[in-house]
């Protein structure tokens, strides 16, 4: 390739990186809260799907993606309430409930989509989603303009949401109690705080953000819904949390890294004359995750009480 072509290619890849990282950023940030409080939710994929479908359906009927987003958050909070009810109050096994969420999320959204929307496909494609907002002047910058200043509102929101998340987790009393609950729930209990309430709140944050991450796919990234549109992103978000060492900014940058590999793979498939089978590029992010695990060794320790239901004595 010519040098100029390489720069154009790189700008396109990096612009797509941020866009493709956005669902990971929302979802993994939420899961950081949940896991920091000691609740592992492997049902993120299901919650994302429910968010994606709710946002799609509401935007389709109201014509306004903002309502879609609000509905997705409501759907996510409902999921969170159910998840917390089962795992925190009833002390059911978190893996079981998470696995069930994935089944229900996929089944419910696909069933409703097929039975309610299958006849309306043509009109379904026409609703208005969040479109790219060009920042005046800055968007015309060479190279950086395309990457940083021609995105949609949900993409722009990500660093601010992560900033708010990091503030909440590290600089507030609530954040301190979340982090303590994941490490030593009994100490939190002795200090007179309600372990259950803190875990409910964290799970609600986790599911609401996962639903937003899913909604992004139907009201910003595209303007339609497909069965299983999340295609495994909820599982990737789980890996992002671990590799990002359970920190909001860690989750942000690891998400960008995954976004980069996704973007690279998609863009390289489109470039003619590249002879590597596309499956090798597809496999990169997953291989990367395994390599990171081997190199991180045991330095990244999960919250001590992760996955353990709390029984007050």
């Amino acid at each position: 390739m010519e040098p100029l072509a390489i720069i154009t290619f790189l700008a396109a890849v990096l612009a797509a990186t941020w866009r493709l990282a956005t669902p990971f950023i929302f979802t993994s940030l939420g899961e950081v809260f949940s896991e920091r409080a000691g609740v592992l939710n492997i049902g993120l994929e299901g919650v994302m799907l429910i968010g994606a479908f709710t946002a799609f359906a509401v935007t389709f009927f109201t014509g306004n993606p903002v309502w879609g987003l609000v509905a997705a958050m409501t759907g996510g909070l409902t999921c969170g309430l159910l998840f917390a009810l089962l795992t925190v109050s009833l002390k059911a096994n978190q893996i079981v409930v998470g696995a069930a969420f994935n089944l229900v999320g996929l089944g419910l959204t696909s069933f409703l989509y097929r039975s309610v929307f299958s006849g309306r496909m043509e009109t379904a494609r026409e609703y208005h989603s969040f479109s790219p907002i060009e920042i005046p002047l800055l968007s015309r910058l060479p190279f950086f303009g395309e990457i940083l200043f021609r995105q949609n509102i949900m993409v722009y929101a990500t660093p601010f949401v992560v900033l708010a998340g990091a503030f909440l987790l590290y600089r507030t009393a609530f954040g301190l109690s979340v982090r303590s609950t994941g490490e030593h729930p009994r100490t939190v209990d002795s200090a007179g705080l309600r372990v259950g309430v803190i875990r409910y709140a964290s799970v609600l944050i986790g599911c609401a953000l996962a639903a937003v991450g899913g909604a992004y796919l139907t009201v910003a990234h595209t303007n339609q819904f497909n069965e299983g549109i999340t295609s495994g992103r909820g599982f990737i978000a789980l890996a992002v949390v671990v590799i990002g060492r359970w920190s909001p900014w860690g989750a942000f940058f690891v998400s960008l890294l995954f976004g980069f590999f996704y973007a690279l793979q998609l863009r390289l498939q489109a470039v003619s004359g590249i002879t590597i089978p596309y499956q090798f590029l597809q496999a990169l992010p997953y291989l990367l995750t395994l390599v990171v695990f081997v190199t991180l060794r045991k330095r990244a320790a999960p919250p001590s009480a992760l996955g353990v239901p709390y029984k007050s004595s």
Binding site: L40, G46, L82, L86, L90, A92, N93, Q94, I95, V96, V97, A99, A100, F101, N102, L103, V104, G105, L106, G107, L108, S110, F111, R114, E227, A301, P302, S304, A305, L306, G307, V308, P309
Partner: peptide
């Protein structure tokens, strides 16, 4: 796909009825 919903709800209600006595061990 209705079957996925049924399977998932089977698991959820089984979890609620306390069928599972196993817990994740302390990491």
């Amino acid at each position: 796909v209705l079957v996925s919903v049924i399977q998932g709800v089977v698991l959820l209600s089984a979890a609620a009825f306390g069928v599972f006595k196993i817990t994740i061990t302390n990491k």
